[in-house]
Design a protein around this nucleic acid. Structure first.
Lengths: 208, 208
DNA sequence: ATTTGTGAACAGTTTCACAGCG
DNA sequence: CGCTGTGAAACTGTTCACAAAT
């Protein structure tokens, strides 16, 4: 009994996505290789970590594999509650984002320090002033946060979210958030992503 | 002479960010550890890969370290040209994104298959119909793309970008893009980020 | 016959321990 | 003498090769 490696988890999340809406009944590790670029060997190893055997001479059964993935990834069961912190331009786009419609996630609250916004903006879930952050997160049992505030507020609000017991933050700000390692962070800011692309493509020879 | 490991590159990108606008002259690996969660040993190893020696008994010289990072990461020199593909709600938010203002990146073109949008929307750089994608990218010498189209168009446009010789794509769509591995991809879609957070926090025990 | 599943070998990454330097 | 810089050790993740399964 061992823990699934982090790189494998990241690939398995994407594999689950790859399998959704796929019309075929079966898929082989070689087909997955050609779709993702991960070696067929690696794909098989990753899947074997799930502890299910849903493949044979004609490849994996897509349906069974998808179910095993969702179960292992925690994406299958009931809806995970999220909140949006920061209702500026980016936050507003994510507010009524159809993307999450058929997903395992549900946004149940929005916050902004500008009361004008929380009163004027319309959404299917309630919007609150940031002063209510702690109480609403506790009452609603929110586990995940989407951070779309401006840079000046980012660390302070991240800290408050962490104190609330939030399990993870999707960070749209360019700030490096300093939090205890129990809080997972995914940095999705455009600038960071672009810089990472450049670093990946650059042949950075270590000088040795 | 060896290549810098990918995990190190990703950390170094974030380290560079951490150092910007930092008022202090010096910073130690232990301070970086407390800000980032990476062990001080790892921080020193990462920095040593740059081949510069900018630290001593009172820590690293922030200025020198920052310069070495930007040089190694390719983020220091002249502006990198980017384009936005897809001018829906997300694309529009990124259009006049102040975030890139003082960065190494410059958006020089936007594309959308809806000519209404390319004609009505205002921005400091020109907007073109998607039919112009190949010619504009070639003429402008654009290296990086920000993909904000809807899911249906994502793979087709990614393929066209790859054919143009684009070096990397920041993927805002929930699609898994299939491209030759010369094209770097950073997935920043909200759904993927949330699913990754859940997977990271879940104690996924491999069944052995 | 073809493809999975997996232990063992290999490669990559991180940690450790301590020499060297300001 | 505290902190960096770095080989060597320990650990983690990937590839390989082939037995098992259908």
């Amino acid at each position: 009994m061992q823990e699934i490696p982090e790189p494998s988890k990241r690939r398995l999340v994407l594999l689950s996505r790859l399998l959704t809406d796929r019309a075929v009944k079966n898929i082989t590790s070689v087909q997955i290789e050609s779709l993702t670029g991960w070696s067929a060997n690696l794909v098989r190893k990753d899947i074997s970590l799930l502890g299910v055997k849903c493949g044979a001479s004609n490849g994996y059964k897509v349906q069974e594999l998808k179910e095993a993935l969702d179960k292992a990834l925690g994406t299958g069961s009931e809806k995970q509650k999220c909140c949006i912190v920061g209702l500026g331009r980016m936050g507003q786009v994510l507010l009524d984002n159809a993307e999450l419609e058929e997903s395992a996630f549900k946004i149940v609250a929005g916050f902004d320090s500008n009361v004008n916004r929380t009163e004027v903006l319309r959404s299917v879930f309630p919007l609150h002033p940031t002063t209510m952050l702690e109480s609403v997160i506790k009452e609603e049992g929110i586990s995940w946060a989407i951070l779309t505030v401006n840079s000046e507020e980012a660390q302070e609000l991240a800290t408050r979210l962490a104190v609330c017991g939030i399990k993870g933050i999707v960070n749209y700000t360019p700030c490096i958030l300093s939090l205890q390692k129990e809080v997972a962070i995914e940095n999705v800011c455009l600038l960071t992503a672009l810089e990472t692309l450049v670093a990946m493509k650059k042949d950075m020879a270590a000088v040795f």
